Amino acid sequence: MKWNVPNILTALRLLAAPGVAVMFLYFHRPWADWFALLLFISAAATDWFDGYLARAWKQTTKLGAMLDPIADKAMVVIALMVIVGYSSMSPWLVLPATVILFREVFVSGLREFLGDTAGTLKVTQLAKWKTTAQMIAIAVLFAQGVFEHYFGAMTHGAVMLGHAGLWLLWIAAALTLLTGYDYFRKSIPYLKE
């Protein structure tokens, strides 16, 4: 196992994922919202930095290649679980969250099943945009929680943030479906055994 700066950043992002949920266990709102938002944004930023540094410093490793998608999925899944759990369970939130969670589990299962042939499911540029859209949508939804506690749930700003977060989440869900379909399509020749 080779530990370098990019791998350490990825490992820290992986550890930060459950930290988002822990904020709501140990802090009252709005502090939990603030801490979760700051932790999520900080961890999401490392997603770009660890990949950039690994390529720039020629420090790409198998460990990093394995941990990076796990850290991304853990961040998204745990954050969505917290957001849905603290929401009004609106179908406008639950449906795109369900699509995202299903796709993440489905593609992980495909990769596990394909094993050595999983190279056929390399991360595409669209999948990178999907992850970016997910991270932005989740950050906006956490920010809505912060805004609601300071200015009230029905203020214009809180309502606008909520609508923006939902629209972004639906866009992320659409990109998630597209990339899930693309990975499934690429795996079909290996599933015909």
Rank of each mutant, 00 (worst) to 15 (best):
R55Q: 10
D47G: 02
Q59M: 07
T46P: 13
A56F: 14
A45K: 06
K73R: 11
I70E: 07
A43D: 09
K58V: 11
M81I: 09
R55L: 12
S42P: 06
V77A: 12
A45W: 01
L67P: 00
D47M: 02
G64M: 02
A54K: 10
W57R: 15
K62E: 12
V77G: 07
M81F: 09
W48I: 13
A45H: 11
I70M: 12
T46W: 06
K73S: 10
V77T: 10
P69K: 12
V77H: 03
F49V: 12
A43K: 04
K62W: 03
Q59L: 02
F49H: 14
V76G: 11
V77E: 09
T61Y: 06
A79L: 01
L53A: 09
W57M: 15
R55S: 13
D50G: 03
F49D: 14
T46V: 07
P69M: 10
K62D: 11
K73G: 07
V77C: 14
A71H: 01
A56Y: 15
V77L: 14
D47K: 03
W48H: 11
T60K: 05
D72L: 10
D72F: 12
D47S: 02
A54S: 12
T46C: 13
Q59S: 04
I78D: 05
L67S: 05
A56K: 15
L63I: 06
I78Q: 00
